[in-house]
């Protein structure tokens, strides 16, 4: 008796749902991510033990290692300009949370350099949220 060889069909991976999964992942990343506007600004964050998680805010002020002030990633010429811009941006914000302004400053910058920026935020009606890293207890 002659035995017939079984014909094997081509092996294929089920890839029909790959695209759906990929798009779900994209939606997840789009919803969860914030684009780093300040990636090109050079500053080292300070650290302290008494810090907690803070929420992202729409406004962010950075003072870099050279003392340059930035608002939402845009370099400004002085603290007075910062105050003017923040005042107009915060004019319609009535909720306290909406008035939060993230303040990020290089740890080696002297008070005479960063304090005008802090004053400008407060004078414009913003609530300063100082951003830094948590330091573990020794």
């Amino acid at each position: 008796m002659k035995l017939r060889r079984k014909r094997r069909g081509p092996i294929s991976m089920p890839v029909a749902s790959m695209g759906d999964i990929a798009f779900l992942l994209i939606i997840f990343f789009m919803v969860c991510s914030n684009f780093a506007k300040e990636a090109n600004i050079r500053y080292k964050s300070p650290s302290a033990q008494d810090v907690a998680a803070v929420r992202e805010a729409g406004l962010s002020v950075v003072v870099d290692d050279q003392g340059q002030i930035y608002l939402n990633g845009r370099a400004l010429d002085s603290a007075a300009t910062l105050e003017g811009m923040l005042t107009s941006m915060l004019r319609d914000k009535t909720d306290a949370v909406q008035r939060n302004v993230l303040f990020k400053c290089d740890l080696n910058v002297a008070r005479k350099v960063f304090e005008p920026a802090l004053d400008a935020i407060v004078s414009a009606g913003g609530v300063v949220v100082a951003v830094g890293e948590r330091r573990r207890k020794e």
């Binding site: 907690a52 803070v54 992202e56 993230l102 407060v122 609530v127 300063v128 949220v129 951003v131």
Partner: peptide, 8 residues
Amino acid sequence: LTGFNTEL
């Protein structure tokens, strides 16, 4: 993000 709200 970590930090604190300051009441200035």
